[in-house]
Design a protein around this nucleic acid. Sequence first.
DNA 1: TCGTAAACGAGACGGTACGTCGCGTCTTTAT
DNA 2: ATAAAGACGCGACGTACCGTCTCGTTTACGA
Lengths: 201, 201, 201, 201
Amino acid sequence: MPVEKRRSAKSRRAIYDAALALVTEIGYPRTTIEGIAARAGVGKQTIYRWWSSKADVLLEAFLDLGERTARAAGQEPADQAIPDTGDLAADLKAVLRATVDELRDPRFEAPSRALAAEGVVDPELGRLIVAKLLEPSLQLYADRLRAAQRAGQIRPGIDPRIALELFVSPLAQRWLQHTAPFDYEYTDTLVDYALYGLAPR
Amino acid sequence: MPVEKRRSAKSRRAIYDAALALVTEIGYPRTTIEGIAARAGVGKQTIYRWWSSKADVLLEAFLDLGERTARAAGQEPADQAIPDTGDLAADLKAVLRATVDELRDPRFEAPSRALAAEGVVDPELGRLIVAKLLEPSLQLYADRLRAAQRAGQIRPGIDPRIALELFVSPLAQRWLQHTAPFDYEYTDTLVDYALYGLAPR
Amino acid sequence: MPVEKRRSAKSRRAIYDAALALVTEIGYPRTTIEGIAARAGVGKQTIYRWWSSKADVLLEAFLDLGERTARAAGQEPADQAIPDTGDLAADLKAVLRATVDELRDPRFEAPSRALAAEGVVDPELGRLIVAKLLEPSLQLYADRLRAAQRAGQIRPGIDPRIALELFVSPLAQRWLQHTAPFDYEYTDTLVDYALYGLAPR
Amino acid sequence: MPVEKRRSAKSRRAIYDAALALVTEIGYPRTTIEGIAARAGVGKQTIYRWWSSKADVLLEAFLDLGERTARAAGQEPADQAIPDTGDLAADLKAVLRATVDELRDPRFEAPSRALAAEGVVDPELGRLIVAKLLEPSLQLYADRLRAAQRAGQIRPGIDPRIALELFVSPLAQRWLQHTAPFDYEYTDTLVDYALYGLAPR
DNA sequence: TCGTAAACGAGACGGTACGTCGCGTCTTTAT
DNA sequence: ATAAAGACGCGACGTACCGTCTCGTTTACGA
């Protein structure tokens, strides 16, 4: 990357930090590029030079936050996977409980809501979010479901990419719209319903 | 409503039409109150007098659109319900297919995406949207599921308010994020998975 | 003027005052439209709405200053003329001495230098300055010279519009370029040279 | 000049050419240092290293242009003088006609107007312009007038430094403000008026 | 003859001001 | 008397240049 060579790492850090802080403190709509630049002690042009929009800055800042958090948790970015203890229901419940915790973390809450909202309305950004943020996680679910399928714990005809939506989408939806309690009991229930269905057996 | 007495029905109509048209034509972010006023041939103050924000205008315009559309389809606003032919799967599939059609209608697409996005980020608006737009529909699903429960087609312990999320949320999520095909085959599959679960029976 | 009816007199006054003050205090190049707006307690748009450029603001402010100054001196704007005591040389010397005083007044100095400079480089503005600022004064000189011509104090073939340049232009030029002393002695000399020529009589 | 030893002659040429071309093509205010650097194929720092401002560059570029033009006309830079045929009026008229031609040359017009304007507003630059650009020419007029004085063609008491302003300043003023025709007839008239005065003899 | 230090091109950087857009409020004009 | 029309103070937009500051890369010197 000869183009990026001259890029100032210090400015980039400061911009990420400022963007995340502002979104958390005053909310996404009241966060402005001027505000980010001022808080980061950076010229506006330095932002416009490398990012195309407020949402773009936030997306990268958020991805960076994710990486740093993961690294701080001792994980290499690559070796993430859903545990496979042999008990599919337990494994899924555990992961969803962790997701609940994460979505409630105030450092994540504001930026990810903002990105979700913006992605709904800006198709280009939406595609980026799906590709960089969502897809990797969904892939992990799909992998785990396929393993369960091989182990005979899931019916052979089931499409894992659709199956995972049965618990992932309701969770996302409740979080986005805070329509109802958002807790471990809920996610546990979701897994049970999804695995065993609604109809009598 | 004595306060609303003096309100001009003609202006209101013009404002609704302008708002919906602009959101469809140029998108929500580029739709402005000034633009709506100009297009409606109305003073800005007339908008500010009755609505508190761009989103507020759009929400009411959209509710009005829904009512007019329903009325045009010959239904009284009150007697909407999910059909009950006795075959739960078939009934749900039919309703979801109709939902797919509606969400694809360009007249609905732009405004409802805009509202969904704005609601994620603006809690006050989010509450309004849930209450006025979503809740009524969800109630219909819950009613139908309860009927099925009474008929023994759904296990007794199942909570209908969670159960309905198994097919409604994935649908909503795919539509918001256009992550994958959005068609009848998909909704049919969703109903099957939800009713009969993923695990072998 | 139906268009100007809505114009705020208070803002206009504040803008004129701010513009003149800033040009005097920090100089024309460092005077900015933002600065004027801030000092006047006015939105930038209010300036851009009514004037096309910084120079345009300053020209009008300066014309206004001239009018107010004249009115404060008790004169009606219309009845300005060069005195005619019968002694042409004395009359011209008196007027030029007054001009020297005015050009040295710090309230006039900065704005008029700025306008002169800008007019040299911006033809449109230059035309305005000549028409509104210079031409009226030059006309007075021409009138006085014509009267002298009728009285036989100036040769019949002389073109008054060129003749007046013999003393007016050197004065202006010295002022603009401060090349040399700028005082009563100088202007008196100018009048003598111009009236009686350089060659022996 | 040990300091200037390493200075690149090629860059200097390119910068002069770019500066003059840009001022002519797009005008002084829209000419920028970045623009000059880009057009000259030179880094900005190379300009900042040797000149202190846009005006400074232009002044040197213009002086250089003058030297090159004079050299191209076959003259040594030093032996410029106003001809002395014994007929003062004729000599002055001839020189002023040449000045008219030069001031109309488009290669000179734009840069010299720009410098004149900037010099009015920037005292430091104004002093430089007077010293390097104007003073030498004025000195030639003063010399010629003194010679005429010695020859008895000008009254003994006349101050040549003021006398020359009678025709030089009006010419400069008309050119700066294009208030009126700028031609041979005008300059001839100026010389006549200046030499023989306005009053009857 | 070859290092080495300068000058160089390129262009990122922290800034300031630009001229525009839209906000929400307030005032005027014309029904 | 009630709106439309639109001026107002304000704040942010995205852009253009400013003058400073690294970056490698020539380039010409003097050791």
